Computed example of a mutant assay.
Amino acid sequence: MNNLVLLTLGATLLGCLLVVLGVHAYTKGRAERAALIDRLSAAATAEPPGRRRRFRGLDRRLRRTALGRRIERKLATTGLDLTPGEFFVYVLAGVAGIWLLAASLLASFFGPVAGLIGLWASNAFLNWQRAKRTEKFINQLPELSRILANATQAGLALRTAIGLAAEELEAPAGEELARVSHSLAVGRSIDDALAELTERLPSRELVVLVSTLVLSNRAGGAIVGSLRNLTVTLEQRKETRREVKTQLSQVTVTAYAIPVIGVGSLLLVDAVLPGALDRMTGAFIGQTAVIVAIGLYTLGFALIRRLSKIDV
């Protein structure tokens, strides 16, 4: 009987000890998790030296919306040092400014039209920045391929070679490869990390390079020889793209000169006949003519840009 009492008492004490240890481990784990979240949040919101973020409250609320997430994705591909909140406020201020400017210089009817054009121009600006960054990245691809080939020939693993290329190359290639290296460091596969890179900076040259790296990583093979041959090909494509861009520069200038001529003609009419635009846009037929003219100018701009776009 005494042995049974002692056994029960010992089991009870052991159970209490295990409960205390479990509660201690649970609270310690929660504290470490909270500390980790705080460090990651501080790192995500850290400000570079001399750069003070504005409109933080608006930025936090905007990021919760679909529009804010879309702006954030576009800003991430452009390399601009702006938050979604800052970009949103700057766009609203710019739209308001050109609205008032068009209404005062031309006529009140042109205020909303200029505002819509301003919204379109903000989206076009992001697309232009993304295309510019992608073009600069494409020009760095031959050097990137050469660094990867040299690092692989020296016996380094592909993950290490990507990290080395991120340190050697300037922006935007260095920044983008640093993102890939960080993704690999937290356990992402090479296929997924490189696929995200092609989504951020879509181009045929990058797709070819990524396909070569992925296939060589999966099946093995002479990756050094493939990268050497790819380097030569990328250099040739770089020169070809430069020649095509030079040949089409006059056409590109013509495309942008068309809307400038339209705005200039309106200013000229208003200067020769003061108040003519107010009288013209005061009638329905005049408003319809202006809208049709803007549509034709836009169509001409789009057609010229489309005809001058040659994929190399």
Rank of each mutant, 00 (worst) to 15 (best):
N3H: 10
N3I: 13
N3S: 13
L4C: 07
L6W: 12
A11Q: 09
L13S: 09
H24V: 15
Y26A: 14
T27R: 15
L40E: 13
S41M: 08
A42S: 12
A43C: 04
P48I: 11
R51G: 06
D59F: 07
R61K: 15
T65C: 09
T65Y: 06
G68E: 09
G68M: 11
P84F: 04
G85Y: 03
F88D: 08
F88N: 01
V89G: 06
V89L: 12
Y90G: 03
L92V: 08
L92P: 00
G97Y: 06
L101C: 08
A107G: 00
P112I: 11
I117W: 11
A121S: 11
A121E: 11
A121D: 07
L126K: 09
R130G: 05
A131I: 07
K132T: 14
R133D: 09
Q140H: 04
S145K: 05
I147H: 00
N150R: 03
N150Q: 13
Q153D: 05
I162Y: 00
G163I: 10
G163N: 11
A165F: 08
A166T: 08
E167W: 01
E168F: 09
A171C: 02
G174P: 06
V180R: 05
V180E: 03
L184C: 04
R188Q: 14
A193T: 08
E196G: 07
L197N: 02
T198H: 02
T198R: 14
E199M: 08
P202E: 04
R204E: 15
E205W: 03
V208Y: 06
S211W: 00
S211P: 01
T212N: 07
L213T: 08
V214F: 07
L215K: 13
A219Y: 13
V224T: 15
V224Y: 01
G225D: 15
S226A: 15
T231F: 01
L234S: 06
E235H: 03
E235K: 04
R237G: 04
E239C: 02
Q250V: 10
Q250L: 12
V251H: 09
V253C: 03
A257K: 04
G262P: 07
S265A: 15
L266E: 06
L267I: 09
A271L: 15
G275S: 05
L277D: 00
R279Y: 10
M280T: 10
G282L: 11
Q287V: 10
A289T: 05
A289Y: 08
V290W: 02
V292S: 10
Y297Q: 13
L299R: 07
R306H: 12
K309E: 14
V312R: 14
